[in-house]
Design a protein around this nucleic acid. Sequence first.
DNA 1: ATCCAGTCCT
DNA 2: AGGACTGGAT
Length: 250
Amino acid sequence: MASSNKELEDFLLSQALELHQRPRVIIEFTKNVGADKIINDIEHFPHFFVLGSIMNQQIVFQRGWIIPYFISELLNGKDFESFLKLDLATTKSIFHEHSLHHFNDKMAFAFHAAIQKIHFEYDNDASNIWTWDEPDCKTVIRRFQEFHRVGQKISTMAVNVLVRDFKLPLPNHRAIDVSGDVHIERVFKRMGLAPRDAKIKEIIEIAQKIYPEYPGFYDSVCWEIGNGWCKPSNPDCEQCPLNGKCPKII
DNA sequence: ATCCAGTCCT
DNA sequence: AGGACTGGAT
């Protein structure tokens, strides 16, 4: 850690505690109320959450999360069996025709491969990823990473959402790191929690030192700060909740 | 017109 | 460690 800033860290802690301790509420993954209802319903439509997680990279998050919902509308079915009918060529043509993603070819492949994995390895029920054998967080993160194009960022984000937002009682929060994406990297540096030249790996290690019992605890707060105020250029420090506590290291 | 992004690949 | 991917944002 570059230097200790107790006031800042206490504020982050209080914000994170609020998020983690509140009762389960509907999370806004998209700008579509109908889609959000389905993505939040991991008890009945867990594949929307898993597929949406995988799509949620390199594009604004709402656009990624809505991809499974958009495709379910095309297929006229929300059950997993509807998705299972998709072959790779059809999946690719849907992605390209509607420009669902920046990386339509790769993401269509990942989408199709994920459906096949849920079919063959999780008995057509994506929630088995976090229910089979009563896994701990480390196991669930590993299972997410076994999907095509799921790495450190997506796997930790997904499990963080399962624990923090969906209130799943998964043990071993020590395994949940911060998601190493650009928001977390930028905000950690500007807050003075990480040196200016820190690599993603170092950011993750710094978060482990700050809160070892749950390194990804501050992830959501920092991500919201980065998305809402701490923009790459022209950060809106005046309106930022951290104004007055943040050293604003640009 | 240039910049940017997680994961995979070299 | 460093580049490719690819199209929306700036």
